[in-house]
Amino acid sequence: MSNLKYAYFPGCPSESTAIDQDMSVKAVFERLGVELEEMEDWNCCGASEVEDPEIVYALNARNLAIAEKKGLNIMTPCSICYYNLQRSNKVLRENEELRKKIHSIDSSLTYNGGVEVKHVVDALVNDIGIEEISSKVQKKVNVKVAPYYGCYMGRPPLTAFDDPDAPILMDRLIEVIGGEVVPFDYRKAKCCGGPLMMTVPDIAFKMARDILEGAKNAGADCIVLACPLCGMMLDAKQEDIEEAFGIKIGLPVLYITQLLGLALGISPDKLGLNKNVVDTKAIVGRVV
């Protein structure tokens, strides 16, 4: 795998609320021998708050151009960054008029269509490969896992790299490290409520509660996911959700790269496992 290298797009929460994801992605890729070069001066993808698609395309033309100059494909750990980077990539490749319009704003926005965009789960399963990962596994993860994919791995069709209703790629990663995937059916890809967290919190909390209780009722020891906003709702806000509904959940929520990193023999501290809000010690203790 020594020839594989990505331009790394960390996303805005990577140094704060999703620092555990950022740490674990870097540690896992290092262990797998895949180089990550952080993109120089990357900018915000627009998240779900920039609703005008043309502004999203222009913001990401700059990001795509930065990677293109380096001759590298982009890998990002955030599902929303992935969606915005990938849809901009696809639309800009097809639409010459739009490329010209964006180019006329500033020369730093000139993108010629030569970059591929990968979500971290896509990169792990489809670029690096299950076999390669399997050959580096050192420990068995004796844990029952509810794999939570959220919205943007399988939807919308333009950017999807997994099934919209029954995604499977994280299941394969969990199985190869010895974890047991609990039946989590449609909740795997049902929205966590994140986009309404600040504006309509009661709806956001009801959405998140359904995922958390669904995982618990399915007998999971933890939830595994790969998006900082899902992590915010299900991990950082879990206590607020418990309080709002008068319920007890207490379910650890890990990024897929944290669980994978444990199986690869990386130390819990290096994977940021002391930074998850719901305590992860019980999970760490069952990786032997």
Partner: peptide
């Protein structure tokens, strides 16, 4: 103003 932009409708 309450759409979650989860894209389920678009996918189906």
């Amino acid at each position: 103003w309450v759409c979650l932009i989860c894209q389920t409708c678009t996918a189906r």
